[in-house]
Design a protein around this nucleic acid. Structure first.
Ligand SMILES: [Zn+2]
Ligand SMILES: [Zn+2]
Ligand SMILES: [Zn+2]
Ligand SMILES: [Zn+2]
Lengths: 143, 143
DNA sequence: CCCATAATTGAGACTGAGTTTCAGTCTACG
DNA sequence: CGTAGACTGAAACTCAGTCTCAATTATGGG
């Protein structure tokens, strides 16, 4: 947390942005909710903790956190974005259960390697990717 | 086209749905615009051909075409959906240029195989997936 | 061929996620 | 301190897509 705050402060100052109370609180709460939350989860979590920030500020701050690389944005179908802190975590992709909403992570160096290879062959400069598998998790597919 | 119409008719009757003038026209226009179009492209293309259907009907019919397997829906970031006819085409995924919007296709049996393997390991029943690489195409990254 | 029934259509209202606007507030830096 | 310029929140707005409902039409049986 100390480190995270320092890293965010650094990102902000490098971009001539300011460290405000709202941004401090949002960073702290983002780390507290943990994985794969959406803006409403965050809002509710903050209210329960007696904290608040407007939706506009949430979106704005999340964009900065994403830009700083401290948080990843996971685009779900139909434009429902989720976020997850990436501090000290490795890149991974997701399996999404269509029934219960569970999100399972997976990592495949092999797939990542093939992606690079494809980009090389197509002379394409990759800046990011989304690899999402939809279906039913163990529990939901057994019933 | 004949075949496509027959296949769609078959899908419709198997689902107690009706073959209407609108649906016939939309299917024909979908095949005519070809790859990776969005609903507005389709609407404009239809107007230029002197044809028309309401937005609601377009969305409804595209959903049926997707459901029948004749068209695939490609979810882009921020919920901008694109569609592409899949008649006689093989499954593939996409590279998307963030600058000019070009969409390049790629196919990797290897990646598909790894996906299946991941699902098996996680006891996950896959119904679909999205694998999209974002970045800059050859032309856009050279300037 | 005609009818009854149920599916379909289009206009426009509506939704939900996210963005923009703008006046008042606050941070940072000298 | 003082100030330039960044930040904030409320509310208006956007955009893609969905829903509602009255009028229209396909279908299949008689
Ligand atoms: Zn990946
Ligand atoms: Zn994750
Ligand atoms: Zn390009
Ligand atoms: Zn394609």
């Amino acid at each position: 947390m100390q480190q995270a705050a320092a890293r965010f402060a650094d990102y902000l100052s490098r971009n001539r942005l300011r460290m405000t109370r709202e941004r401090r609180v949002i960073l702290e709460q983002v780390l507290a909710v943990g994985k794969h939350f959406d803006v409403d989860d965050l809002l509710v979590h903050m209210r329960n903790g007696g904290l608040r920030a407007s939706r506009a500020t949430l979106y704005r701050t999340l964009a900065h956190l994403v830009d700083s690389g401290m948080v990843h944005k996971v685009e779900m179908a139909k434009g429902q974005a989720r976020y997850e802190p990436m501090l000290g975590r490795h890149h991974h992709d997701h399996l999404v259960c269509l029934k219960c909403g569970e999100i399972i992570e997976f990592e495949s160096p092999e797939v990542e390697r093939i992606q690079e290879e494809v980009c090389r062959r197509k002379r394409f400069t990759m800046t990011g990717h989304t690899h999402q598998i939809r279906g039913y998790c163990r529990r939901c597919s057994s019933r």
